[in-house]
């Protein structure tokens, strides 16, 4: 079960996320930076609740009011030409 993929876009599995959390005692944001989970094509829309749940379970902390994995624009993939306007 530890080999189950959590982040589909970047193919990051539960084991890698768990190990990273216990090694660095990190937040969902730090997991994203260290493992790329939640950083792929979909922008974390699919795995965000899963990442939050894993961090909550391992750290034993309840979710806070600010969104753990900061949402940043663009929230859909956009070509550089479009951003440049």
């Amino acid at each position: 079960m530890d080999k189950v993929i959590i982040c589909r876009c970047e193919e990051v599995d539960l084991e890698e996320i768990k190990e990273t959390i216990s090694k660095y005692q990190c937040s969902a944001r730090e997991i994203k930076l260290r493992t790329r989970a939640g950083m792929g094509y979909c922008g974390g829309r699919t795995c965000r609740p899963a990442l939050n749940a894993i961090v909550a379970e391992i750290s034993g902390e309840k979710l806070r009011h600010e969104i753990p994995l900061k949402i940043q624009p663009p929230i859909r993939p956009v070509s550089l030409g479009k951003i440049g306007g």
Partner: peptide
């Protein structure tokens, strides 16, 4: 809303 995943081996 969006759907919350229930990841399982093979779900991709």
């Amino acid at each position: 809303a969006a759907e919350t995943p229930a990841p399982l081996p093979g779900w991709t």
